[in-house]
Design a protein around this nucleic acid. Structure first.
Lengths: 334, 334
DNA sequence: CTGAAAGCGCTTACAG
DNA sequence: CTGAAAGCGCTTACAG
């Protein structure tokens, strides 16, 4: 089957390519009959415009990209979708780019800048580190949704986050208030200087406030997947069975951990209390329902779009927005 | 910051654009010193080739697209990823396109045909219906992974599936063998002529074999999400509390249903047995672990790639491959 | 309201 | 091993 180009359509409709292009782009300045004829021909041919050619030529379109790093993280996925939702009313077209966790969101941004003339970015699931230096010197507004640490090094970068440290503190405080003292913390590397280290600091804060010291030997470094958490938790609770509570830095980790405890013959929350983080849908359906720090996905999304558009349209200064998060006290803690 | 083009690089490196293009494409016929100089300049400029321009010109590349419809379905996601994994050894470059469940995978295919010169497709999460007629007459090899019904209408379409009907029959047979008789079936519309109606037929087969008749009033039409299933199941089990088992056409549905039962004060599997379908990761971590029909993701992926490449490279006839699935008997059934 | 022409950033024969 | 030139399918001033 032939691949029709705008030239073919022009020939078949008996008009110039310019006119076809106008119809394609819904320009108002086309005679109605001409438009209808062209549209008919396009429909008959199943014509699909070549986005490469368009992208190559179109140079002054205002387009914003949402780059989501980590397709598998349900919290990030729902956040990115909420951002796309709120982008509707902005009067600007947003496009969404999914990349793997191993991919580099800054390289992706650079590429989109060239290929799709993207003029602004919202990063979801980004970790701001040395890799961002490829964007240095680019006068491009960007917003980091749920990542704040280090965004200052980029000239026009804003951040929308919850107060990670304060929320982690409240979560662990709740466990302490429930009478737990031998608390484990399941997170990742503590030296990254990212959100997770803020959560770790928050956990330490809670202990400190009570005049206690967190027993470092109860810190467990885990992959952020159910399976990774399952393995780590199994090993840990065999070794340290006196632990009565765990603060997990994501809901997936919490669920993997609960399953591991169950397989060790221990019940949540009767034997061990478990706190999650993020407030994913699955956590609400899990048995027991997860006690967690709920990220206000809608608020983060709405603010991210607002802040970005304000920088983009009104040349507003970069800013740092902290939205209010909530503790969801549910079945997994006692 | 300037956006560098191949022309800029050529000027800065003191060579022609042809030579830069050669370096970019890792052609062997470039002097080592020349190559190194060009590479140095590209690195300094953070040069990123413009994929639009490349896509516009490059006309004879062999590229296969995997189109995944339904980003949210964890089974489909893992299947698409497995396909990408097996594509590595094929000697052809594969690209993956994620689209929403509401989007049209056949329109997407048509677009990719034009834009990226895609020469063959693997569809994941497709439902073959009238929409596919935009691809009619196109001499393009395609494989439907886990969808078979209706693929014959496309000239060069193959299908790789499990025997949906037989597996559903075995699942319901197992429930009947366990002594259950008042069994509910949670699925979608039964008239679509797709995989789900095959599963429904399989369920009926199991009853028929035992000389029983499925009580149609125990068929529940639900959205395929935990929340959708939760609502439907809650309503259903309030109305029909004598039901002792449920066959669910996906794991998500099963999990939503189990949560609903729990909230009604009923325990799985002690009060009600629940069978899922797909064999997702979450089902293995859920409490109770899900009894389910496991789709052999790796086998389906490997066969899909093999069948496609065979059609693509060797002009093999379209075929229909049925891979072996397995019942995973786990905690949720008694 | 319509069209001829230039050009976006690449790749690809072709010539040397 | 290297380069000049044509052209991929569009859009966009510009002219009428």
């Amino acid at each position: 089957m032939k691949i029709y180009t705008i030239k073919d359509i022009a020939r078949l409709a008996g008009v110039s390519v310019t006119t076809v292009s106008r119809v394609l782009n819904r320009r108002p300045d086309v005679n109605r009959e001409t438009r209808e004829k062209v549209e008919r021909v396009m429909a008959e041919c199943h014509f699909v415009g070549n986005a490469n050619a368009r992208g190559l030529k179109q140079t002054d379109s205002d387009v914003v990209a949402v780059i989501l790093r980590g397709r598998h993280n349900p919290f990030l996925t729902s956040l990115a979708e909420a951002i796309m939702h709120y982008s509707q009313g902005s009067g600007t077209s947003f496009l969404m780019e999914f990349i793997d966790e191993q991919d580099d969101e800054f390289q992706t941004a650079l590429r989109l800048t060239h290929e799709k003339r993207v003029k602004a970015f919202i990063f979801v699931g980004s970790r701001i580190d040395d890799r961002c230096k490829v964007l240095l010197g680019m006068d491009i507004p960007m917003v980091f949704a749920t990542a704040a640490v280090g965004h200052e090094q980029l000239a026009r970068a804003s951040a929308v986050t919850i107060d990670e440290r304060a929320m982690a503190r409240l979560a662990v405080k709740h466990l302490l208030d429930c009478g737990h003292e031998r608390i484990a913390v399941f997170g990742a590397s503590r030296t990254e200087g990212d959100n997770l280290s803020l959560r770790y600091q928050g956990a330490l804060d809670a202990f400190r406030e009570k005049g206690l010291v967190f027993d470092e030997s109860r810190y467990v470094e885990t992959r952020f997947s159910m399976e990774g958490a399952y393995e780590c938790a199994r090993e840990f609770f065999l070794r340290r069975p006196d632990t009565t509570a765990a603060f997990c830095m994501s809901d997936s980790v919490a669920m993997g951990l609960i399953r591991a405890l169950k397989d060790l013959g221990r019940t949540v929350p009767d034997d061990v209390s478990v706190f999650g983080f993020d407030g994913t849908e699955m956590g609400q359906f899990f048995i027991p329902r997860l006690c967690t720090v709920e990220q206000p996905v809608d608020d983060i999304a709405r603010e991210s779009v607002r802040v970005l558009m304000d920088m983009f349209r009104n040349n507003a200064e970069p800013t740092e927005v902290v939205v209010k998060a909530e503790l969801k006290l549910r079945e997994s803690v006692k």
